[in-house]
Structures are given as structure tokens and as C-alpha cells.
Amino acid sequence: MEILMSILIGFLFMAAIYLILSRSLLRIIIGTGLLSHGTHLLLITMGGLGGKNAPVLSEGVTDYVDPLPQALILTAIVISFGVTAFSLVLAYRTYKELGTDNMSLMKGTEDND
């Protein structure tokens, strides 16, 4: 199971890097979304996929999933959500001000602002 997950995560990273290296700003942000999905899946895989029951305390349940990676992922999800929201608004604002979403045009000196 871990092998399968690793391959999937590898594909997610591949797609994310491909998108981040593209020109359009929106593709880049989609790439960062995929990157964070891959990251979170990696966290849960690295914690081990063993265990049968959800980590909720109830009677007669002894075989738990490791609860720590889940807490880490929850933290990482909200953080990346905040950052993504910020970067989307920034991208919107940049598009309005600069009139382009092409990263290769967003360069230059003081003169060609």
C-alpha cells in the first residue's frame, strides 16, 4: 500500500513541478495546490498506513491508526489554505494592475513597469 501511495505522490509532485515551471500564473497556483496535496499524502504515508480503527477513543478498540500525522496534516492543510487564498488574491490584484498573467513578462527594471 505504501508503495502505491509513494508512486501516486511522485506523480503529484511531477505534475506540480511541471505546472510551477509554466508561464501562466494560474497554472502555477494550481501547481502549488497539487504540491501541497502531495505533501499531505506523503505525511500520512510516512506515518505508516497500518492500524485498523480511527483514532477515537471507544470501548474495545485497540488497534489505532497513528494519530500524530493526522494532526500535522490538519495543521498543514489550514496553513496552505491560508497561503493559497492569499496568493490567489495577489494574483488577481497583479492581473488588474499589471494587465498580464504571463510570468515571463513580469520582469524588468524601473523603466518598463
Binding site: T32, L35, S36, T45, M46, L68, L72, A76, S80, S87
Partner: peptide, 16 residues
């Protein structure tokens, strides 16, 4: 964003 993702990945490896 990229370096933060990499940080989480590294922490994941270290945890395992």
C-alpha cells in the same frame, strides 16, 4: 510555498 512544502516533506521523512 515550495520551500515550505519541502519542509513538511522533510519533516515527514524524519518522522518515519
Amino acid at each position: 510555498i515550495v520551500s515550505s512544502s519541502l519542509f513538511v516533506i522533510t519533516v515527514g521523512y524524519l518522522y518515519s
